[in-house]
Design a protein around this nucleic acid. Sequence first.
RNA 1: GCGGGCGUGGCGGAAUGGCAGACGCAUGGGACUUAAACUCCCUGGGGCGCAAGCCCGUGCGGGUUCAAGUCCCGCCGCCCGCACCA
Length: 897
Amino acid sequence: MPYDPSSLEPRWQAAWEQAGSFAAVRDERPKYYVLEMFPYPSGRIHMGHVRNYTMGDVVARFKRAQGYSVLHPMGWDAFGMPAENAAMEQGGHPRDWTYANIATMREQLKPLGLSIDWSREFATCDDDYVHQQQAMFLDMLDAGLITRKSAQVNWDPVDMTVLANEQVIDGKGWRSGAVVERRELTQWFFRISDYSDELLSALDGLTGWPDKVRLMQANWIGKSRGLQFRFQTVDAPEGFEAIEVYTTRPDTLMGASFVALSPDHPLVRDLAAADPRVAAFVEECRKIGTTEEAIETAPKLGFDTGLTVKHPLDADWHLPIWIANFVLMDYGTGAIFGSPAHDERDHEFATKYGLPIRATFGERGMSLEQADALVAKAPFVPLKSETVTYVRGFSGAADQTGEAAVDAAIAHAESAGYGEGVTKFRLRDWGISRQRYWGCPIPVLHCDTCGTVPEAKENLPVLLPQDVSFDVPGNPLDRHPTWRQATCPNCGGAALRETDTMDTFVDSSWYYARFTSPHAATPTDRADADYWMNVDQYIGGIEHAILHLLYSRFFARAMVKTGHLPESAKEPFDALFTQGMVTHEIYSNALGGEMITGSDAVAENALEEDRLKNRIKYYFPEDVVIYEHHGRRRGITKQQVKDANLYPLKQEDLSFALVEGKIKFDVVVSSSAKMSKSKKNVVDPVNIVANFGADTARWFMLSDSPPERDVEWTAAGAEAANKFLARVWRLADEAGEGGDDPDLTRAAHRAIADVTKAIEGFAFNKAVAKIYELANAVGKSKAGGEARRAVLRIMAQLMGPMVPHLAEDVWAMAGGQGLLVDAPWPKADPAMLEDDTVVLPIQINGKRRAEISVARDMPKDQIEAMVLADETVRRFLEGAAPKKLIVVPGRIVNVVA
RNA sequence: GCGGGCGUGGCGGAAUGGCAGACGCAUGGGACUUAAACUCCCUGGGGCGCAAGCCCGUGCGGGUUCAAGUCCCGCCGCCCGCACCA
């Protein structure tokens, strides 16, 4: 009987379930909390999920074997726009759509054999979760962590609704096609910016996080030291006698050539009220979306107000005031001075509008003329740590670094009294208001008498009304006939409910804490949180490096402040791993605008493809057959092969069929990209599990590609994975009688050491390679009987975290006692790991020319003597003494001739 | 535009500054078979050579070092994020 995952996998899953193997329990063992970022219930699981959860499962099972009490939960990030979009497109209710998707996905996930404690499952749209989140919101409101202020949104003037950034395409609303405007709304915010410094400095302690993520967060928080000062205005309207600016480069003050205001600056508003030309310019600026990307990539636009300011160091020197579309109101003071000689953007702006470009400094030793010449065509922006020569300096030495010059300039401004050094952060408060239905209602009321009033805790949860429709754009809560009507908990009078719901990032900012006690009547249970927090290993995509992870770090602090988490949990994730995406080749019918019918064009060009996307037809991988023809990969649709009565067409019959004209290549193979429904380059995990079993899918996801990098799903790779697992199964099935093989036992212990190290280091691809080596050793070995079974049991243990079903079967066949899942992780015998002799490569002038075999502990002088006596070395030296002889013990020898 | 990352055979990848290409896939050859599939063995960066061996080779151009895929500087290409996608 061959390897049959379809019978074996359900059997072991049932065994684990019956044994209750994965229930997380508080006991005397040390605890380990493994968490993968929870999925959005889009409707079907995809390969990205399989990869993410397989990695987490490897860690969970590995730690379990190492004697930890493991918490490995699963839930659903269930609020969000797709449910509303589905309701708009297909009718139905977001709640029904969401829960149906969850049911489907749970059924698709379970056959993967993940070691999850399913009793802890919840969805963020559950009434209970909403309830606890609202309770925390009230606590946080009370603790001063929440505020209300004005913020800009994308406004679709036709649909009369707020759009998400992704719903704005080329500055237009995705449904209406209307040019989107920026509008101001009063919104709810978490005061994350109060924690800027704390969130930044605490990054140093996150030693279990990738450096790149810490760096991205540090840059996002963006601490900067600069000078804040006032320009005195000339002839400006009343109330605008001075303009406050902030600069991180006060040392370039003598190179200032203009002042630029944000279109949202108060002075600009004042001017716009009086001058229609200003108003028109501002309106033009507002047609750019709200994203920083849109603002920064839009062409730089300026408007000369005609007003001027006095330079703080020379009252007779007047600078023009411009309005510029790239100046952000959110950062600094909404006003800057332009220093075109030393800033890319200012240089572009000055060049476009004919404003002066005056160097403040040049390369070391340059004269004023040389420095001005240097910056005429392009700005000079050296590293701040580099020493430069100031040609228009006003403080500090002539030759100094940018850093020193900034400090000197701040000191100068402070002693002269025209400005002060300040520290600013780029991080803005976290706006959580969404003008949408399918989210957690913000539990607040608006009372005519009492103003904005928090709902009383005993009135929670504030649940969404069920009788809503999505046939008209806009927020159904706003137009619901009765839902808004409520009683003010303060005065007992009539009040209106807040109709904003919360950003779904709020839901995902504390689910990790809720998993520690998912059914508690309070947001957390302190004993459980104390025991299970922190998450020891968090695993998810790099796309969450900034927002989700930063918000979660803030939220944990807010939960500490409101007593929902212990102080020790303020950094909730001890270690983080960011895994890569799953990609696949793309199969389509067209390239370069022509329908491809067996022509030579196979290469891919993303831009071209984008331009032609409307004419391109995509094929699912399961609908095409790929052949190698004249060294190129070409595709034919299965339908075509069937129509020609040739299915299944063999490679060797291909040329015949082509020559006879029975078939032609009509599918272009394009390079791999992230799996997406629109390009149909998706492989359904359900099909893979049905065809090959879950273990094959898991094994493939772990093989070959390093976990942090993208992995390309290929049919050949999946088959190879399946073949290997079948081979391992046969090795166990066919184990016969025989004697010892010390080399095999050594190989097994080597494998224990290597695989353990690889799993600990998240190098699953290397662990897989080491298991291949062990399997090859088993296959070659003559060992039999208990000696062979002992090695097979080790192999089962090492494979257990990755392919748990097969491993259980091999374990049982090789005479393992009880369930493998309960067996402790094997330990390598140190005596088995060391060889007595080592082969030392000999390099001559850095190139490998020979090797010698020496005792591991041979002294250096003996090695040197052996090297000099070596025939190849003597040939290269031609009788001369080496210039140098480098011996790195146990590693390498280099002879410099 | 700004921030972050990645780039090694035909392909996925391996390599505490120390033998580049572990391991796997594809290819080619062979064994088994009436035949095929399965399986097993060998081959497996490019070039020259009967061979021993030699030369070239880690996106491109420089540099540091006895020694560079790895460190430094400057480019090119691709990917991720940019605050209302999740």
